[in-house]
Amino acid sequence: MPDAALGADALELAGPYRLLAELLSAEPDAELLALAATVPALRPHATQAAAARHTHVFVLNVYPFASVFLDPDGALDGERTALTRGVLGALGLRVAPGLAADHVSVLLDALATLLEREAAARSALDRDRARHAQRVVLLKHLLPWMPLFLAAIERADGALYGAAARLAGGLLSDHVGRLPASSHGSVPTWNAAPRGPAEPPRTERGRRDRLGWLTVPARSGIFLSRSDLAGIAGDLDLALRFGGRGFMVESLVQAASQADRTSELTDALARRVTAQRDEVAAWGRRLPQARPLWAPWLELSAATLARLGRSGTAHPVEAASASPGRGHVTGPPSGGA
């Protein structure tokens, strides 16, 4: 698509972006549902009953924050939250007080706002500036985590939010395709545990914490929601205790061990890893110009499979706690620096 066409249809993307931003930010009211119902992709699910799933999806299962997916500790309100606020501020976008800047709704609304800015541009220079800003938000802050995030929503909800996730995937893909080709000369990357296997965070201790990395996307390459874990437990007929995801993983491992089903659990986890890896790979095939963005996920998921012993080299789940060696005799663990 020639550059000049972008400005003209910028608002065609901006509208649905903003609608999605509102839908994902909180349980929708009747007015918003009515607006959603005007969109064919959402129409069948735009009901109050479907909307009641908001808490289930976004509060209990699929946390809609970049920091959860991209930060090394996978926690809310992480480094990325502050970074994103700074970047948006520098791009001239003010985030409403009380909102985390790395919330998916903020980022989608930011894209909508920048598309409006582009449509309002009076000169080619202003238009280019607006596009540059879109590129930053899109490529650096949103797209890196979208494959895992959107797929997790679809797994957690078959109705309104699943449909919204599919819609978002399409919009983002279109947006990438519409940015001028020169924008793709270099794709910015994010720091996903850039080297070596997905080793546990060094501050973590003990068996339970040593499995915590499985629930940290930037270390494991996958996102496991509570409903994902419940699904695994159900498939294997294992008891599952409810709590934080790290705790739940631990309880699954214990239950599997007691039931002598460790190997089956490992297989089930490996299947999840493989499925999510395939999701990511599909995004790469669809948008080759942005493929480098997702390469870290593929490396991480490969390393995770290796650590699960399901790529033909390493040991089963129990070995996930083994510290990767460096070929040196090492001393006792740090006293904490």
Binding site: G15, R94, A96, T113
Partner: peptide, 18 residues
């Protein structure tokens, strides 16, 4: 998209302002 934007404009809560 433009009509959607217009319809959403009246709503109170906006995540981002330009």
């Amino acid at each position: 998209g433009a009509r959607l934007l217009a319809a959403l404009r009246g709503r109170a809560r906006r995540a981002v302002t330009d």
